[in-house]
Simulated scan of single mutants.
Amino acid sequence: MQIPHFPEANHPLVKSLFHHSDHELLTLFQRHPDAGKYFTVIFCRYSPIVYTLIRHSARSPVQADYLFALTWRHIYYELGGLNLTTPESGEPALTMQNWLINITAFCINEIKLPPTEAIHYSLQATSPPLWCYVQQALDQLPPVLRLIVLMAQTFHWSETRIAAYLQAEGEAIAPNEVANFLQEGYRMLEDKLPTDIRAIYFGEDLAQS
C-alpha cells in the first residue's frame, strides 16, 4: 500500500505554517479551536509516519484507510489535552512524534474494524482533517437534519426511502420535503465548518468568509 498524497499540504494557508515547531502548532491548535489549519498542518507533517504504521496492520487497503482516518479522529480529540512541556522530574520530554506513534499503536490494537464491505469511508474523497471537522459540524446539527444528511451521504438513500424511514420513526416528512431539509442541512453544515477549513478544502476565499 502506497503512502497517500494529500493535496492540502500544498495549500498556501498550510504551507505558511510549516515553519512552526510541533510545540507551537499544538499551542495554536489548543488556543484557537475555531481554526482548522493548525491540525491540518500537524496532519500533513505526520501522516506518512501514521500511515506507514497502520498499513502493515490492516488486512486490506480499505481497512487501512479507514483505520488511518479513525486514528486521526482520535488524535484530533486527544490533542486538546496534550502537554509537550518538559517534565520537572528529569525524564525525557514527550515529543509529538513519539506521542503520535503511541496513539497510533493504541488505535491499531484497540479499534475493531468492520469488514471491508461495510466501510463507507473513502480517503480519496475525504481527507481525515476535513472528516474530523465535518463530523464536528454534524454533531451541531439538529437531530433530524443530521439524520437526513447521513442517510443521503453515507447510505445514498433516495428521498423517498429517507421519508419512509422518518415516517416510520414518527416524523411527518413527505418525500418532496426531504430535498429542502437536505439543502438546509448542507447549508448549516458548511456554516459550522471553520472558515479556514472551507478555504483549504473547498477553495473559498478567506477574505469573503
Score class of each variant (00 low, 15 high):
R55I: 05
M188A: 07
L123I: 07
L145E: 02
N109T: 14
V144F: 01
T126W: 13
F181P: 01
W131H: 11
P115W: 03
N180V: 10
G36I: 06
I200A: 06
E88C: 08
I75V: 14
S21Q: 02
T195E: 09
F202H: 12
E204T: 13
P115Y: 03
W99Q: 00
A199P: 06
I42W: 11
E88L: 14
H5R: 11
L79M: 07
F39I: 08
S89N: 15
L166N: 02
I103A: 05
I148F: 02
L84H: 04
R198Y: 01
N102S: 14
Y186D: 02
E184V: 00
A105I: 11
A199I: 07
E8A: 13
M151Q: 10
I173Q: 01
W131A: 02
S21Y: 01
D22G: 03
V14L: 11
S158F: 06
S158P: 12
H56N: 13
Y165K: 08
I111F: 15
M96D: 11
I119G: 10
G170I: 01
H120I: 06
A168C: 04
H23A: 15
R55L: 10
K112M: 12
L17E: 10
H11D: 10
K15D: 15
N176C: 10
W72H: 08
Y46V: 01
V134T: 14
